[in-house]
Amino acid sequence: MFEQPLLQVKNVTKKYGAGCQKCMSYCSTKLIKNYCSTCRTVYACRNVSFDLYTGEILGIVGESGSGKSTLMQCLYFDVEPSSGIMYFDHPGLKEKNLFHLSAQQKRLIRHKKFGMVYQNPIHGLKMHYSAISNIGEKLIAAGDRNVAKMESIGNMLLREVEIPVFRSKEKPLHFSGGMQQRVQIAKALSNNPPILFLDEITTGLDLSVQANVLDLIKNIQMEYGVSMIVVSHDLAVIRMLADRTLVMLDGEVIEEGLTDQILEDPQHLYTQQLVYSLI
């Protein structure tokens, strides 16, 4: 018996523009990269499909403008896709396309079942709230009202991500980039979500800080068993974290497979260039 995917994503497309007869067939040869010169529509994502399994880390790699961050925004309901299906293997939600749920239902899933760590912490944190208040904000949004419980969870998670408890009442505005990312991770984990989205979280960090953040993510995945989708333009990050990998270019998935397989035997010319850049 085959394992049921925790998350199924099918044919997700996000276009900016109305589209025309020339480009609506989604044929790559009719576009300039991901741009239609006739109607000026930009296809940020085109027919992206994948499965995510329980306890798995799925990597998505590609250059800037490849569509990977737009895809993550669609999955986390920050952006509404133009078309596509997302199924979540959870009681009461099976067989329902999450993209078609009400705004209230989407908010509940965001706060209770999904966690997000953005590339820029300013999108994931309230910089003028304290670190522990940021965690409390997500707990409140999910319906929690017990202040003592929220404070206990907040302090526990800050310790987990190696933020000193004596700094829990400080604002992330005064933290380093690496510390801000760790507060984001703690906030994302506050409701023990089964799925965590990580978007370019090492960009702009010093190499030593990058290594610490990646170690933290790996430890969290092993401890909590949370499934993750990790987006990066850096194949070295994907190599360290991901079990399977999708390679995106111009809004499309051009290659997918086990991460080791892609690293050892890349098939697409673009993937080959990425892999050879590591050598």
Rank of each mutant, 00 (worst) to 15 (best):
K138T: 12
S176G: 06
G143E: 11
E170C: 04
D243F: 15
R107N: 08
S277M: 05
K138R: 13
T38V: 14
K218W: 12
V147T: 13
M156C: 09
L139I: 15
E256P: 00
V247D: 00
E137T: 14
A44K: 03
H174P: 02
E170Q: 15
P194M: 02
G92C: 09
S208A: 04
H174S: 11
L58H: 07
L249P: 00
V226R: 00
L263Y: 01
L58F: 07
L108E: 03
Y35A: 01
I201K: 07
T245D: 04
T41P: 00
L214T: 13
D144T: 07
G84E: 11
S69P: 02
E264W: 02
K218H: 14
G65P: 11
I163P: 00
D250G: 00
C20A: 09
L7P: 01
S64C: 05
A103N: 12
I279D: 06
G225Q: 04
Q105K: 13
H111C: 09
L173K: 14
T54S: 07
C27N: 14
N219I: 15
K171F: 15
R46L: 10
D265R: 10
L157W: 06
D234I: 13
L157P: 01
N11A: 12
V48Y: 02
T202A: 08
V213M: 07
V231R: 06
V165S: 02
S130F: 00
C27E: 15
I109W: 03
D265Q: 12
K33L: 07
Q210T: 13
S232N: 08
F88W: 14
N192T: 10
Y76I: 01
I220E: 09
M24R: 11
R145W: 07
A186E: 02
H90N: 09
Y87L: 13
G55T: 06
V247Q: 01
E3D: 12
R159E: 14
N155T: 04
A242C: 11
S227A: 14
N34D: 10
G124L: 01
Y118M: 06
L205E: 08
E162S: 09
A186I: 05
I57G: 06
Y118R: 02
V61H: 07
L207S: 14
K126V: 14
S69T: 14
I217Q: 02
L101T: 10
E255K: 03
C39N: 06
C23L: 10
P91H: 03
L214C: 04
E137M: 13
E252A: 15
A18F: 12
L31A: 12
F77N: 05
I262G: 01
I254M: 00
M127I: 15
A131P: 04
